[in-house]
């Protein structure tokens, strides 16, 4: 007997992500999902962003790694709420793992929650966690062919941060090619060139992020 089904295989995760999103919305909390390949600079970006925006918004972080709590410790040193998830092998976070951290946060005390996903340029883009938007980092040492090799993440992201531009003199990587290729896949992508080492370009990112949080109706202190 043949049965026609027509069901999205990821629907169970999508449903949990939507429930998460409803909780974030109710608390007036803006959430973004931060993705990149291993070592592109996700935790470094968060360290900088926490320092850069500490007078303006109250941030919390969820750290996703296959193993270890080193990233959470780096964030905790900044004195903001952070929860480490260890996926124990899974190459991405999903809605369920995010939901399990809720009891460890007091969302009333937060304006912005950042989910640092597992370092991986493929899988995290496939699984919603309840975020308002996705931000991805590509570092210049990874090469300009990455957008066309990993189109899904570029397509799903709202912002692309091109990191480690301080290393440009030492690598054969053309930023204009990265931008051109990324825009083909996602013509609405907002892009910033940054260095988490020198701080170059980060002010523009901070302004964008403040505006994104404010435009969702969150009242920021200190403007």
């Amino acid at each position: 007997m043949k049965i026609s089904v027509v069901k999205n295989i990821l629907e169970a995760n999508d449903r949990i992500a939507q429930e998460n999103r409803a909780i974030f919305d109710k608390k007036g909390l803006v959430v973004f999902n931060l993705m990149s390949s291993p070592g592109a600079g996700k935790t470094s970006l968060l360290e900088k962003t926490i320092d850069g925006l500490k007078d303006h918004l109250r941030m919390g972080v969820i750290e996703g790694d296959i193993q270890s709590s080193q990233d959470a410790e780096r964030i905790a040193r900044r004195g903001i709420p952070v929860v480490q998830i260890n996926t124990g092998g899974a190459c991405h976070l999903d809605g369920n793992m995010i939901r399990d951290t809720f009891e460890d946060f007091n969302f009333d005390d937060l304006d912005l929650l950042v989910v640092e996903n597992v370092g991986n340029l493929v899988c995290p883009a496939e699984f919603q966690v309840g975020e308002d938007f996705k931000v991805m980092i590509l570092s210049v040492t990874e090469g300009a062919d990455k957008p066309s090799k990993y189109p899904l993440m570029f397509h799903e992201s709202k912002v692309l941060l091109i990191n480690k531009i301080d290393l440009l003199p030492y690598v054969d990587c053309d930023i204009q090619t990265i931008k051109k290729e990324a825009l083909k896949i996602n013509p609405h992508l907002t892009m910033f060139e940054i260095s988490c080492k020198t701080g170059e370009g980060l002010d523009a990112w901070y302004s964008w992020l403040k505006e994104a949080v404010r435009s969702r109706g969150v009242d920021l202190k200190g403007k």
């Binding site: 043949k2 089904v5 027509v6 069901k7 295989i9 083909k184 013509p187």
Partner: peptide, 29 residues
């Protein structure tokens, strides 16, 4: 080539209508 641009009018306001999902369509039991 993953180029989200209209071949007709070059607009980049494109709605994806197929090729993004992962779905079950039929089972034989």
């Amino acid at each position: 080539d993953y180029t989200f641009e209209c071949p007709e009018c070059a607009s980049t306001e494109i709605d994806t209508i197929a090729g993004q999902d992962l779905s079950i369509v039929e089972m034989e039991v």
